[in-house]
Design a protein around this nucleic acid. Structure first.
Lengths: 133, 133
DNA sequence: CCGTATCCCAGCTGATACTG
DNA sequence: CAGTATCAGCTGGGATACGG
C-alpha cells in the first residue's frame, strides 16, 4: 500500500481509500455505488423484504437489487434471513456494522437533499455563463 | 415527485433521493460516484492544482478527473481558480457547500477504513460457506 | 414471493495523442 | 501545466424469461 497518500485526519490505519489497490476502495464503492447507498438507507428504518425494498428504491431492477444485496451481505453490512416457508419470505436487515455505514450515508443524503436549491441555482449560473460564450 | 417514498427521518423537504426522478439523486451520484467522493475528500485539506489532485486520487485518468471536476463545479461544490499565467496554474478548492459534503463523506470514508478488518473477515466467511456448497 | 439466467446495449472508462 | 479529442473495450444495468 502506498503510505504517501494523504490520510486527511484519521490516525495511521492500514487502509487508505486514496490508494488504488486498497481493499477499502472496493467496499466504499459498494456502499456509495448507484444502488448500494439507497439500499442501505432504505434498510435503516428496519428490515424489509425483497419486493418491499424494490419499491422503496425507486428505479432499481431485480437484477441490480439482487446483486447489490449480495455484495452488501458479503461485506457484512446486511443480514439475510430466509424463512423456509411457501411462498418464501426473506427479510433483509442491517448488521450493526451496516447501521454505522447507513447513519453516515443518511447524514450525507439529508445534507444534499437540504441543499438542492443551492445546487440547482449553481447549475443555472454555470450553464448560463457557459451558454453565453 | 413521488411523495409516497420514505423520508427516513428528515422533515418534509421538496427533494427525496429515493424517488427516481428527483434531481437530488443526480447530485448524490456526482458526490458518491467513483471519483467524486475521492476528489472532494482530497480537496478537504486545502486547494490543489490539477496534477496534484491527480496524484492524490490514485488511479484517476486525466479525462475522468476533468469530467468529475466539471460536474462538481457545476453543482457548486468546487471552485475553479485559473491564473492567466504561463505556464497556466489552476487551483481547485471546496466551496462552503462542498466542505459540508466533504465532511460527511470523510466521516463515511474513515468509518469504512476503520472497519475493513471486519469487512474482510465477513467476506472470508461468506466465500467459505458458499464454496463448500 | 424470491430470486437466477440470458441477452444486449449505452455509456463509462482508460489509453493515447494532441493543443494552448 | 492544464487540459481536450478520439477511439475502443468492458461492464454496469435494463428487459425479459424462467426456476424454486
Amino acid at each position: 500500500m502506498d503510505t504517501t497518500q494523504q490520510r486527511t485526519e484519521a490516525p495511521d490505519l492500514p487502509y487508505n481509500v486514496f490508494a488504488k489497490a486498497c481493499p477499502s476502495r472496493g467496499t466504499l464503492e459498494h456502499v456509495t455505488g448507484r444502488w448500494g447507498g439507497l439500499t442501505l438507507g432504505a434498510l435503516y428504518e428496519g428490515s424489509l423484504r425483497f419486493n418491499e425494498l424494490r419499491r422503496r428504491v425507486d428505479g432499481v431492477s431485480e437484477k441490480m437489487l439482487s446483486q447489490t444485496l449480495h455484495a452488501l451481505e458479503r461485506d457484512g453490512l446486511v443480514h439475510r434471513e430466509a424463512q423456509p416457508t411457501n411462498p418464501p419470505r426473506v427479510d433483509y436487515e442491517l448488521t450493526p456494522l451496516g447501521r454505522g455505514v447507513a447513519e453516515r450515508l443518511l447524514s450525507l443524503i439529508h445534507f444534499v437533499e437540504g441543499r438542492m436549491d443551492d445546487v440547482l441555482e449553481s447549475r443555472r449560473r454555470y450553464d448560463d455563463t457557459r451558454g453565453a460564450l
